[in-house]
Design a protein around this nucleic acid. Structure first.
Lengths: 239, 239
DNA sequence: TTTATTATTATGTCCATACATAATAACGCA
DNA sequence: TGCGTTATTATGTATGGACATAATAATAAA
Protein backbone atom coordinates (compact mmCIF):
# COMPACT_ATOMS: atom_id res chain seq x y z
CA UNK A 1 0.00 0.00 0.00
CA UNK A 2 1.14 3.51 -0.70
CA UNK A 3 2.12 5.76 2.13
CA UNK A 4 2.15 9.53 2.16
CA UNK A 5 5.92 9.37 1.79
CA UNK A 6 5.52 7.42 -1.42
CA UNK A 7 3.09 10.01 -2.71
CA UNK A 8 5.42 12.78 -1.65
CA UNK A 9 8.29 11.22 -3.54
CA UNK A 10 6.26 10.58 -6.68
CA UNK A 11 5.00 14.14 -6.70
CA UNK A 12 8.52 15.49 -6.18
CA UNK A 13 9.74 13.33 -9.03
CA UNK A 14 7.08 14.80 -11.30
CA UNK A 15 8.13 18.28 -10.31
CA UNK A 16 11.87 17.86 -10.61
CA UNK A 17 11.53 16.02 -13.91
CA UNK A 18 9.48 18.94 -15.22
CA UNK A 19 6.58 16.65 -15.96
CA UNK A 20 4.70 19.29 -13.99
CA UNK A 21 6.47 22.42 -15.19
CA UNK A 22 7.21 25.51 -13.14
CA UNK A 23 4.29 27.85 -12.91
CA UNK A 24 1.73 25.22 -13.90
CA UNK A 25 -1.16 23.79 -11.93
CA UNK A 26 -0.95 20.21 -10.80
CA UNK A 27 -3.98 17.91 -10.55
CA UNK A 28 -6.13 18.42 -7.49
CA UNK A 29 -6.07 16.22 -4.43
CA UNK A 30 -9.19 14.30 -5.36
CA UNK A 31 -7.76 13.31 -8.72
CA UNK A 32 -4.42 12.31 -7.27
CA UNK A 33 -6.10 10.38 -4.47
CA UNK A 34 -7.94 8.32 -7.06
CA UNK A 35 -4.83 7.83 -9.18
CA UNK A 36 -2.81 6.59 -6.24
CA UNK A 37 -5.66 4.73 -4.59
CA UNK A 38 -5.42 6.56 -1.29
CA UNK A 39 -7.59 8.90 0.73
CA UNK A 40 -7.52 12.59 -0.01
CA UNK A 41 -6.06 13.26 3.43
CA UNK A 42 -3.03 11.22 2.47
CA UNK A 43 -2.40 13.24 -0.68
CA UNK A 44 -3.01 16.38 1.32
CA UNK A 45 -0.32 15.51 3.80
CA UNK A 46 2.20 14.71 1.09
CA UNK A 47 1.62 17.89 -0.86
CA UNK A 48 1.50 20.09 2.20
CA UNK A 49 4.98 19.02 3.12
CA UNK A 50 6.16 19.78 -0.39
CA UNK A 51 4.53 23.19 -0.09
CA UNK A 52 6.33 23.78 3.23
CA UNK A 53 9.58 22.95 1.48
CA UNK A 54 8.76 25.67 -1.02
CA UNK A 55 8.32 23.70 -4.22
CA UNK A 56 4.63 24.30 -4.74
CA UNK A 57 2.17 26.98 -3.73
CA UNK A 58 -1.37 26.12 -2.77
CA UNK A 59 -4.44 28.29 -2.79
CA UNK A 60 -7.95 27.34 -1.96
CA UNK A 61 -10.19 27.04 -4.93
CA UNK A 62 -7.31 28.02 -7.25
CA UNK A 63 -5.39 24.80 -6.68
CA UNK A 64 -1.73 23.90 -6.39
CA UNK A 65 0.94 25.17 -8.72
CA UNK A 66 4.64 24.59 -9.05
CA UNK A 67 6.63 27.56 -7.79
CA UNK A 68 8.11 29.44 -10.77
CA UNK A 69 11.66 30.15 -9.68
CA UNK A 70 12.96 28.83 -6.41
CA UNK A 71 15.68 30.83 -4.72
CA UNK A 72 18.52 28.64 -3.64
CA UNK A 73 18.84 28.52 0.07
CA UNK A 74 21.51 26.88 2.08
CA UNK A 75 21.23 25.68 5.64
CA UNK A 76 24.40 26.66 7.41
CA UNK A 77 25.25 25.01 10.67
CA UNK A 78 26.75 27.76 12.77
CA UNK A 79 29.72 26.03 14.34
CA UNK A 80 30.04 25.77 18.08
CA UNK A 81 33.71 26.53 18.39
CA UNK A 82 34.59 23.84 20.93
CA UNK A 83 32.85 21.10 18.99
CA UNK A 84 34.29 22.25 15.72
CA UNK A 85 37.80 22.12 17.05
CA UNK A 86 37.33 18.81 18.80
CA UNK A 87 35.82 17.34 15.65
CA UNK A 88 38.98 18.30 13.82
CA UNK A 89 40.80 16.14 16.32
CA UNK A 90 42.48 19.14 17.88
CA UNK A 91 42.69 20.12 21.49
CA UNK A 92 40.38 22.97 22.41
CA UNK A 93 41.63 25.79 24.58
CA UNK A 94 39.99 29.04 25.57
CA UNK A 95 41.59 32.21 26.90
CA UNK A 96 39.86 35.23 28.37
CA UNK A 97 41.52 38.48 27.40
CA UNK A 98 39.22 41.04 28.95
CA UNK A 99 35.97 41.22 30.88
CA UNK A 100 34.66 44.60 31.93
CA UNK A 101 31.39 46.17 32.88
CA UNK A 102 31.51 49.51 31.12
CA UNK A 103 29.22 52.07 29.52
CA UNK A 104 28.12 50.82 26.12
CA UNK A 105 29.75 52.47 23.17
CA UNK A 106 27.56 54.04 20.57
CA UNK A 107 27.75 51.00 18.31
CA UNK A 108 27.17 48.56 21.15
CA UNK A 109 24.21 50.55 22.44
CA UNK A 110 22.67 50.60 18.99
CA UNK A 111 23.07 46.86 18.52
CA UNK A 112 21.88 45.99 22.01
CA UNK A 113 18.99 48.46 21.75
CA UNK A 114 19.94 50.21 24.97
CA UNK A 115 20.80 53.86 25.50
CA UNK A 116 24.38 54.94 25.01
CA UNK A 117 26.27 54.88 28.25
CA UNK A 118 24.17 52.21 29.90
CA UNK A 119 26.48 49.73 31.52
CA UNK A 120 26.97 46.51 29.64
CA UNK A 121 29.49 43.70 29.73
CA UNK A 122 32.34 43.75 27.29
CA UNK A 123 34.23 40.52 26.74
CA UNK A 124 37.23 39.82 24.59
CA UNK A 125 38.60 36.31 24.36
CA UNK A 126 40.01 33.77 22.00
CA UNK A 127 39.83 30.10 21.15
CA UNK A 128 42.65 27.81 20.12
CA UNK A 129 42.84 24.63 18.09
CA UNK A 130 45.85 22.99 19.63
CA UNK A 131 48.34 25.82 19.75
CA UNK A 132 46.96 27.69 16.79
CA UNK A 133 44.56 30.55 17.31
CA UNK A 134 41.27 29.75 15.66
CA UNK A 135 38.77 32.36 16.72
CA UNK A 136 39.00 35.83 18.18
CA UNK A 137 35.83 36.88 20.00
CA UNK A 138 34.65 40.41 20.75
CA UNK A 139 31.37 40.49 22.62
CA UNK A 140 28.86 42.73 24.34
CA UNK A 141 26.30 41.30 26.73
CA UNK A 142 23.14 43.19 27.64
CA UNK A 143 23.03 42.97 31.43
CA UNK A 144 19.40 44.04 31.47
CA UNK A 145 18.56 40.88 29.55
CA UNK A 146 20.99 38.54 31.31
CA UNK A 147 21.76 39.95 34.77
CA UNK A 148 23.22 36.63 35.87
CA UNK A 149 26.23 37.38 33.68
CA UNK A 150 27.53 39.69 36.44
CA UNK A 151 28.24 36.64 38.58
CA UNK A 152 30.24 34.91 35.88
CA UNK A 153 33.94 35.48 35.51
CA UNK A 154 34.22 33.55 32.23
CA UNK A 155 37.66 32.27 33.01
CA UNK A 156 36.92 28.58 32.66
CA UNK A 157 33.73 28.45 30.61
CA UNK A 158 33.48 30.78 27.63
CA UNK A 159 30.70 33.33 27.32
CA UNK A 160 29.09 31.59 24.37
CA UNK A 161 28.84 28.25 26.08
CA UNK A 162 27.50 29.92 29.18
CA UNK A 163 24.90 31.92 27.28
CA UNK A 164 23.71 28.90 25.35
CA UNK A 165 22.98 27.21 28.65
CA UNK A 166 21.56 30.28 30.33
CA UNK A 167 19.30 31.34 27.46
CA UNK A 168 18.90 28.20 25.41
CA UNK A 169 16.28 29.46 22.97
CA UNK A 170 16.83 32.76 21.27
CA UNK A 171 16.37 34.35 17.90
CA UNK A 172 19.44 35.30 15.96
CA UNK A 173 20.72 37.37 13.12
CA UNK A 174 24.02 36.45 11.50
CA UNK A 175 26.22 38.36 9.13
CA UNK A 176 29.11 36.72 7.30
CA UNK A 177 31.80 38.79 5.68
CA UNK A 178 35.41 38.93 4.65
CA UNK A 179 37.54 41.68 6.09
CA UNK A 180 41.11 42.74 6.61
CA UNK A 181 42.36 41.89 10.07
CA UNK A 182 42.57 44.81 12.47
CA UNK A 183 45.74 45.40 14.44
CA UNK A 184 44.42 43.59 17.52
CA UNK A 185 42.80 40.80 15.53
CA UNK A 186 45.90 40.06 13.50
CA UNK A 187 47.97 39.98 16.65
CA UNK A 188 45.76 37.49 18.43
CA UNK A 189 45.22 35.35 15.37
CA UNK A 190 48.89 35.25 14.51
CA UNK A 191 48.37 36.97 11.19
CA UNK A 192 49.89 39.92 9.44
CA UNK A 193 47.98 43.19 9.59
CA UNK A 194 45.50 43.37 6.75
CA UNK A 195 45.41 39.61 6.22
CA UNK A 196 41.96 38.36 5.24
CA UNK A 197 39.72 37.14 8.05
CA UNK A 198 36.30 35.53 8.00
CA UNK A 199 33.97 37.37 10.32
CA UNK A 200 30.76 36.00 11.77
CA UNK A 201 28.71 38.65 13.47
CA UNK A 202 25.79 37.54 15.59
CA UNK A 203 23.06 39.28 17.47
CA UNK A 204 20.61 37.29 19.56
CA UNK A 205 17.43 38.30 21.30
CA UNK A 206 14.43 36.94 23.11
CA UNK A 207 11.09 38.44 24.00
CA UNK A 208 12.12 41.74 22.46
CA UNK A 209 15.33 42.12 24.44
CA UNK A 210 18.70 41.85 22.78
CA UNK A 211 20.89 39.42 24.66
CA UNK A 212 24.28 39.68 23.09
CA UNK A 213 26.15 41.04 20.11
CA UNK A 214 29.33 39.31 19.12
CA UNK A 215 31.93 39.37 16.40
CA UNK A 216 33.83 36.14 15.76
CA UNK A 217 36.94 36.52 13.67
CA UNK A 218 38.77 33.62 12.03
CA UNK A 219 41.93 33.38 9.97
CA UNK A 220 40.91 33.34 6.33
CA UNK A 221 43.48 30.76 5.33
CA UNK A 222 42.10 28.12 7.67
CA UNK A 223 38.42 28.82 8.15
CA UNK A 224 35.48 28.12 5.87
CA UNK A 225 31.82 27.26 6.14
CA UNK A 226 30.33 24.43 4.15
CA UNK A 227 26.72 23.64 3.43
CA UNK A 228 25.13 20.83 1.59
CA UNK A 229 21.69 21.37 0.15
CA UNK A 230 19.84 18.43 -1.28
CA UNK A 231 16.50 18.42 -2.99
CA UNK A 232 14.26 17.04 -0.27
CA UNK A 233 11.95 14.05 -0.57
CA UNK A 234 13.79 12.79 -3.62
CA UNK A 235 14.34 9.23 -4.69
CA UNK A 236 17.64 8.83 -2.91
CA UNK A 237 16.79 7.78 0.62
CA UNK A 238 15.44 10.97 2.06
CA UNK A 239 13.40 10.44 5.15
CA UNK B 1 -11.85 25.27 19.41
CA UNK B 2 -8.16 24.57 19.44
CA UNK B 3 -6.35 23.94 16.20
CA UNK B 4 -3.15 22.03 15.70
CA UNK B 5 -1.39 25.36 15.29
CA UNK B 6 -2.58 26.40 18.73
CA UNK B 7 -1.26 23.17 20.17
CA UNK B 8 2.01 23.61 18.32
CA UNK B 9 2.44 27.07 19.75
CA UNK B 10 1.56 26.05 23.29
CA UNK B 11 4.00 23.16 23.15
CA UNK B 12 6.74 25.41 21.75
CA UNK B 13 6.08 27.88 24.53
CA UNK B 14 6.50 25.15 27.13
CA UNK B 15 9.77 24.14 25.53
CA UNK B 16 11.28 27.58 25.09
CA UNK B 17 10.22 28.61 28.59
CA UNK B 18 12.00 25.54 29.94
CA UNK B 19 8.79 24.32 31.53
CA UNK B 20 9.74 21.14 29.69
CA UNK B 21 13.51 21.19 30.11
CA UNK B 22 16.07 20.01 27.62
CA UNK B 23 16.61 16.29 27.71
CA UNK B 24 13.36 15.57 29.51
CA UNK B 25 10.36 13.60 28.34
CA UNK B 26 7.17 15.48 27.62
CA UNK B 27 3.70 14.04 28.27
CA UNK B 28 2.50 11.59 25.69
CA UNK B 29 0.01 12.37 22.97
CA UNK B 30 -2.92 10.80 24.75
CA UNK B 31 -2.40 12.93 27.82
CA UNK B 32 -1.96 16.11 25.84
CA UNK B 33 -4.98 15.32 23.70
CA UNK B 34 -7.08 15.10 26.83
CA UNK B 35 -5.57 18.24 28.30
CA UNK B 36 -6.27 20.26 25.18
CA UNK B 37 -9.55 18.57 24.38
CA UNK B 38 -8.57 17.45 20.91
CA UNK B 39 -8.02 14.16 19.12
CA UNK B 40 -4.67 12.46 19.40
CA UNK B 41 -4.12 12.97 15.68
CA UNK B 42 -4.21 16.71 16.23
CA UNK B 43 -1.55 16.58 18.92
CA UNK B 44 0.44 14.24 16.73
CA UNK B 45 0.45 16.68 13.87
CA UNK B 46 1.54 19.57 16.08
CA UNK B 47 4.38 17.69 17.70
CA UNK B 48 5.57 16.10 14.50
CA UNK B 49 6.13 19.51 13.02
CA UNK B 50 8.07 20.54 16.10
CA UNK B 51 10.14 17.38 15.73
CA UNK B 52 10.82 18.22 12.08
CA UNK B 53 12.03 21.61 13.20
CA UNK B 54 14.46 19.82 15.49
CA UNK B 55 13.24 20.84 18.92
CA UNK B 56 12.08 17.43 20.10
CA UNK B 57 12.99 13.84 19.31
CA UNK B 58 10.36 11.16 19.19
CA UNK B 59 10.76 7.46 19.58
CA UNK B 60 8.09 4.83 19.64
CA UNK B 61 7.41 3.43 23.03
CA UNK B 62 10.06 5.69 24.55
CA UNK B 63 8.13 8.90 23.97
CA UNK B 64 9.04 12.44 23.05
CA UNK B 65 11.85 14.33 24.62
CA UNK B 66 13.21 17.83 24.26
CA UNK B 67 16.44 17.83 22.28
CA UNK B 68 19.35 18.43 24.65
CA UNK B 69 21.54 20.87 22.75
CA UNK B 70 20.33 22.37 19.55
CA UNK B 71 22.96 23.46 17.09
CA UNK B 72 22.24 26.87 15.73
CA UNK B 73 21.53 26.75 12.10
CA UNK B 74 21.03 29.63 9.77
CA UNK B 75 19.15 29.58 6.52
CA UNK B 76 21.17 31.55 4.02
CA UNK B 77 19.53 32.75 0.86
CA UNK B 78 22.15 32.32 -1.79
CA UNK B 79 21.87 35.55 -3.74
CA UNK B 80 21.05 35.51 -7.42
CA UNK B 81 23.43 38.19 -8.55
CA UNK B 82 21.10 40.04 -10.91
CA UNK B 83 18.30 40.21 -8.36
CA UNK B 84 20.65 41.20 -5.61
CA UNK B 85 22.00 44.10 -7.60
CA UNK B 86 18.63 45.23 -8.84
CA UNK B 87 17.25 45.08 -5.30
CA UNK B 88 20.00 47.47 -4.27
CA UNK B 89 18.58 49.86 -6.84
CA UNK B 90 21.63 49.52 -9.03
CA UNK B 91 21.86 48.78 -12.70
CA UNK B 92 22.94 45.21 -13.43
CA UNK B 93 25.52 44.54 -16.10
CA UNK B 94 27.27 41.34 -17.09
CA UNK B 95 30.47 40.91 -19.07
CA UNK B 96 31.88 37.70 -20.49
CA UNK B 97 35.64 37.52 -20.23
CA UNK B 98 36.37 34.06 -21.56
CA UNK B 99 34.52 30.99 -22.80
CA UNK B 100 36.53 28.00 -23.92
CA UNK B 101 36.07 24.29 -24.34
CA UNK B 102 39.30 22.88 -22.99
CA UNK B 103 40.67 19.80 -21.24
CA UNK B 104 39.74 19.93 -17.57
CA UNK B 105 42.52 20.82 -15.20
CA UNK B 106 43.30 18.46 -12.39
CA UNK B 107 41.25 20.44 -9.90
CA UNK B 108 38.33 20.88 -12.30
CA UNK B 109 38.31 17.20 -13.17
CA UNK B 110 38.27 16.28 -9.51
CA UNK B 111 35.39 18.60 -8.72
CA UNK B 112 33.37 17.63 -11.78
CA UNK B 113 34.10 13.94 -11.20
CA UNK B 114 35.43 13.46 -14.72
CA UNK B 115 38.84 12.22 -15.80
CA UNK B 116 41.60 14.75 -16.17
CA UNK B 117 41.86 16.01 -19.72
CA UNK B 118 38.22 15.41 -20.61
CA UNK B 119 36.94 18.46 -22.39
CA UNK B 120 34.80 20.78 -20.32
CA UNK B 121 33.66 24.34 -20.61
CA UNK B 122 35.58 27.03 -18.82
CA UNK B 123 33.88 30.36 -18.34
CA UNK B 124 35.20 33.54 -16.77
CA UNK B 125 32.97 36.54 -16.44
CA UNK B 126 31.99 39.34 -14.15
CA UNK B 127 28.95 41.18 -12.88
CA UNK B 128 28.61 44.89 -12.20
CA UNK B 129 26.41 46.94 -9.91
CA UNK B 130 26.19 50.16 -11.86
CA UNK B 131 29.80 50.79 -12.80
CA UNK B 132 31.28 48.99 -9.81
CA UNK B 133 32.43 45.40 -10.16
CA UNK B 134 30.44 43.23 -7.79
CA UNK B 135 31.22 39.63 -8.59
CA UNK B 136 33.98 37.85 -10.46
CA UNK B 137 32.94 34.42 -11.68
CA UNK B 138 35.20 31.48 -12.59
CA UNK B 139 33.26 28.45 -13.73
CA UNK B 140 33.58 24.96 -15.13
CA UNK B 141 30.64 23.25 -16.79
CA UNK B 142 30.50 19.49 -17.22
CA UNK B 143 29.52 19.05 -20.86
CA UNK B 144 28.63 15.42 -20.28
CA UNK B 145 25.92 16.58 -17.90
CA UNK B 146 24.78 19.64 -19.85
CA UNK B 147 25.68 19.14 -23.53
CA UNK B 148 23.36 21.97 -24.55
CA UNK B 149 25.91 24.39 -23.12
CA UNK B 150 27.96 23.95 -26.30
CA UNK B 151 25.32 25.90 -28.21
CA UNK B 152 25.37 28.81 -25.79
CA UNK B 153 27.76 31.70 -26.27
CA UNK B 154 26.90 33.32 -22.91
CA UNK B 155 27.36 36.82 -24.23
CA UNK B 156 23.93 38.14 -23.35
CA UNK B 157 22.65 35.74 -20.69
CA UNK B 158 25.08 34.68 -17.99
CA UNK B 159 25.93 31.03 -17.40
CA UNK B 160 24.26 30.94 -14.01
CA UNK B 161 20.95 32.25 -15.25
CA UNK B 162 21.10 29.89 -18.17
CA UNK B 163 21.88 26.88 -16.01
CA UNK B 164 19.10 27.67 -13.57
CA UNK B 165 16.65 27.55 -16.44
CA UNK B 166 18.23 24.54 -18.11
CA UNK B 167 18.56 22.43 -14.96
CA UNK B 168 16.10 23.96 -12.56
CA UNK B 169 16.37 21.39 -9.79
CA UNK B 170 19.79 20.35 -8.61
CA UNK B 171 21.60 19.52 -5.42
CA UNK B 172 24.31 21.86 -4.26
CA UNK B 173 27.27 22.22 -1.99
CA UNK B 174 28.43 25.67 -0.98
CA UNK B 175 31.62 26.81 0.66
CA UNK B 176 32.03 30.31 2.04
CA UNK B 177 35.43 31.70 2.83
CA UNK B 178 37.54 34.79 3.10
CA UNK B 179 40.65 34.99 0.95
CA UNK B 180 43.19 37.40 -0.39
CA UNK B 181 42.40 38.50 -3.92
CA UNK B 182 44.50 36.88 -6.62
CA UNK B 183 46.16 39.02 -9.25
CA UNK B 184 43.36 38.46 -11.75
CA UNK B 185 40.60 38.79 -9.17
CA UNK B 186 41.90 42.04 -7.75
CA UNK B 187 42.23 43.47 -11.22
CA UNK B 188 38.68 42.68 -12.23
CA UNK B 189 37.20 43.70 -8.92
CA UNK B 190 39.11 46.94 -8.81
CA UNK B 191 40.98 46.00 -5.67
CA UNK B 192 44.59 45.96 -4.60
CA UNK B 193 46.37 42.61 -4.74
CA UNK B 194 45.85 40.77 -1.48
CA UNK B 195 42.74 42.70 -0.51
CA UNK B 196 40.17 40.56 1.27
CA UNK B 197 37.48 38.98 -0.87
CA UNK B 198 34.44 36.94 0.04
CA UNK B 199 34.37 33.73 -1.96
CA UNK B 200 31.34 31.56 -2.55
CA UNK B 201 32.22 28.25 -4.10
CA UNK B 202 29.41 26.12 -5.42
CA UNK B 203 29.16 22.68 -6.90
CA UNK B 204 25.85 21.40 -8.22
CA UNK B 205 24.81 17.97 -9.36
CA UNK B 206 21.81 15.93 -10.37
CA UNK B 207 21.28 12.21 -10.72
CA UNK B 208 24.88 11.56 -9.77
CA UNK B 209 26.40 13.84 -12.40
CA UNK B 210 28.15 17.03 -11.45
CA UNK B 211 26.79 19.91 -13.47
CA UNK B 212 28.99 22.83 -12.64
CA UNK B 213 31.65 24.06 -10.29
CA UNK B 214 31.97 27.76 -9.79
CA UNK B 215 33.84 30.25 -7.68
CA UNK B 216 32.18 33.60 -7.09
CA UNK B 217 34.45 36.29 -5.71
CA UNK B 218 33.22 39.53 -4.17
CA UNK B 219 34.99 42.58 -2.78
CA UNK B 220 35.20 42.17 0.99
CA UNK B 221 34.47 45.78 1.73
CA UNK B 222 31.09 45.73 0.02
CA UNK B 223 29.77 42.19 0.22
CA UNK B 224 28.19 40.34 3.12
CA UNK B 225 25.58 37.68 3.70
CA UNK B 226 22.87 38.13 6.26
CA UNK B 227 20.57 35.55 7.80
CA UNK B 228 17.77 35.88 10.23
CA UNK B 229 16.83 32.86 12.26
CA UNK B 230 13.72 32.96 14.36
CA UNK B 231 12.44 30.32 16.70
CA UNK B 232 9.60 28.82 14.68
CA UNK B 233 6.00 28.41 15.79
CA UNK B 234 6.44 30.97 18.55
CA UNK B 235 3.90 33.35 19.91
CA UNK B 236 4.80 36.22 17.61
CA UNK B 237 2.68 35.71 14.52
CA UNK B 238 4.31 32.71 12.92
CA UNK B 239 2.21 31.66 9.95
C1' DT C 1 -22.42 48.26 -17.06
C1' DT C 2 -21.30 48.02 -12.57
C1' DT C 3 -21.88 46.13 -8.17
C1' DA C 4 -23.57 43.12 -4.73
C1' DT C 5 -24.93 38.44 -3.73
C1' DT C 6 -24.71 33.61 -4.06
C1' DA C 7 -22.85 29.24 -5.63
C1' DT C 8 -18.99 26.46 -6.44
C1' DT C 9 -14.62 24.51 -5.68
C1' DA C 10 -9.91 23.13 -3.82
C1' DT C 11 -7.60 23.21 0.05
C1' DG C 12 -7.45 23.23 5.39
C1' DT C 13 -8.50 20.91 9.42
C1' DC C 14 -10.76 17.85 12.62
C1' DC C 15 -12.38 13.47 14.45
C1' DA C 16 -12.86 8.53 15.77
C1' DT C 17 -11.10 4.51 14.70
C1' DA C 18 -8.06 1.11 13.25
C1' DC C 19 -3.96 -1.10 12.65
C1' DA C 20 1.33 -0.97 12.03
C1' DT C 21 5.80 -0.55 13.99
C1' DA C 22 9.70 0.18 16.87
C1' DA C 23 11.40 0.24 21.24
C1' DT C 24 11.32 -1.13 25.76
C1' DA C 25 9.91 -3.84 29.74
C1' DA C 26 8.47 -8.08 31.71
C1' DC C 27 8.68 -12.72 31.83
C1' DG C 28 10.17 -17.42 31.73
C1' DC C 29 13.56 -20.69 31.01
C1' DA C 30 18.08 -22.66 31.13
C1' DT D 1 22.50 -14.91 36.31
C1' DG D 2 22.13 -14.60 31.49
C1' DC D 3 19.37 -14.90 27.41
C1' DG D 4 15.62 -15.49 24.34
C1' DT D 5 10.57 -14.74 24.01
C1' DT D 6 6.46 -12.24 24.68
C1' DA D 7 3.72 -8.35 26.18
C1' DT D 8 3.20 -3.57 26.43
C1' DT D 9 3.37 1.06 24.99
C1' DA D 10 4.01 5.54 22.36
C1' DT D 11 4.35 6.99 18.15
C1' DG D 12 3.35 6.46 12.89
C1' DT D 13 0.07 6.30 9.42
C1' DA D 14 -4.38 5.51 6.85
C1' DT D 15 -9.35 6.17 6.26
C1' DG D 16 -13.96 8.20 5.46
C1' DG D 17 -16.59 11.50 6.65
C1' DA D 18 -17.57 16.07 8.03
C1' DC D 19 -17.35 20.86 8.11
C1' DA D 20 -14.53 25.35 7.58
C1' DT D 21 -12.47 28.70 4.70
C1' DA D 22 -10.66 31.33 0.96
C1' DA D 23 -10.84 32.30 -3.63
C1' DT D 24 -13.11 32.36 -7.75
C1' DA D 25 -17.04 32.09 -10.88
C1' DA D 26 -21.79 32.71 -11.77
C1' DT D 27 -25.76 35.21 -11.04
C1' DA D 28 -28.89 38.78 -9.87
C1' DA D 29 -29.84 43.46 -8.71
C1' DA D 30 -29.06 48.38 -9.26
Amino acid sequence: MRTYKDIRQIVMERITSNEWPMGELIPNEQVLAEEFGVARATVNRAIQEIADAGFVERRRKAGTRVVPRRSRDAIVQIPVVREQIENMGENYRFALIARHIVPATKAAARELSISTGTKAMRIVCQHFAGNDPWQFEERWINLAAVPAAREQDFTSVGPNEWLVREVPYSNAEHTFRAAAASEQQSQHLGLGAGDPVFVIERKTWRRGKTITWVQLTHPGDRFSMITRDDIPYSDVASV
